[in-house]
């Protein structure tokens, strides 16, 4: 089965990525340098093979996805020469862009955090448009709880996240002195952090929270 390329709708070029499943398929394909089977794309997107087959047909019609026959299989590949390719890559890379922007913002803080990481669905990449962006931030021992500059940074961050993404930020702020207690008591958040967290600033979260006895 080889689709005839109909082409991008030049009057509505955004239609290349207007269907949510098309976005998920493009997210997978922009992450690979070679062709991938429809079945594997379905696995990676967590979608049905039939849904993905239809999405691939739509995308192949616009030319943003190429099809290659490989024996009895058809492999699909993102067409990086397509005019829409840079825009698609930018859209499918927004999670990384958010993490980069968070890292840059936290890196510019004065006083700086001892550690900051994102955890929960934003770290796993399985959230929805309603999901909070969960952040774990460790305040260094040298910074008082009521330090004005610190407090302003902490309060501004959720506003920044909302402006950047439309999502709420949930900040778990922990003073450095409380880390030993977290290591000892190991409340549920420690497991969540060790399983999911992506470190943005400072030591890796696993090193920060591992038992140091």
């Amino acid at each position: 089965m080889t689709a005839t390329v109909v082409g991008m709708d030049v009057s509505r070029p955004y239609s290349v990525i207007s269907h949510p499943l098309d976005g998920a398929v493009l997210h997978v394909l922009t992450g690979t340098a070679q062709g991938m089977s429809g079945r594997r794309i379905a696995e990676l997107t967590g979608s049905t093979q039939e849904g993905v087959r239809k999405a691939l047909l739509r995308l192949a019609n616009t030319g943003i996805v190429d099809q290659q026959e490989a024996g009895r299989a058809i492999l699909y590949k993102f067409n990086r020469r397509h005019l829409a390719a840079p825009a698609v890559e930018q859209l499918t890379d927004l999670r990384r862009a958010l993490l980069t922007r968070l890292t840059e913002t936290l890196g510019s803080w004065s006083p700086p955090p001892l550690h900051a990481s994102v955890f929960g669905s934003a770290a796993r990449g399985d959230g929805t448009s309603d999901s909070d962006v969960d952040l774990f931030i460790v305040r260094p021992a040298s910074v008082a709880d009521d330090d004005q500059a610190w407090r302003e940074q902490i309060e501004r961050l959720p506003e920044d996240v909302r402006d950047w993404t439309g999502n709420s930020a949930n900040i778990v702020e922990v003073p450095e002195a409380a880390l030993a207690d977290l290591r000892r008591r190991r409340p549920a958040i420690v497991d969540n952090l060790e399983t999911d967290a992506l470190t943005l600033i400072g030591p890796e979260v696993t090193a920060l929270l591992e038992n140091q006895d």
Binding site: T30, G31, T32, A33, Q34, M36, R40, E43, L44
Partner: peptide
């Protein structure tokens, strides 16, 4: 990125797979 990892005895196969990641 690919949903698979190399299990070959020859670890150089892991390089080939890694090249397939964008």
């Amino acid at each position: 990125a690919l949903g698979e990892r190399s299990r070959s005895q020859d670890h150089h196969d892991a390089e080939v797979l890694l090249k397939r990641v964008s």
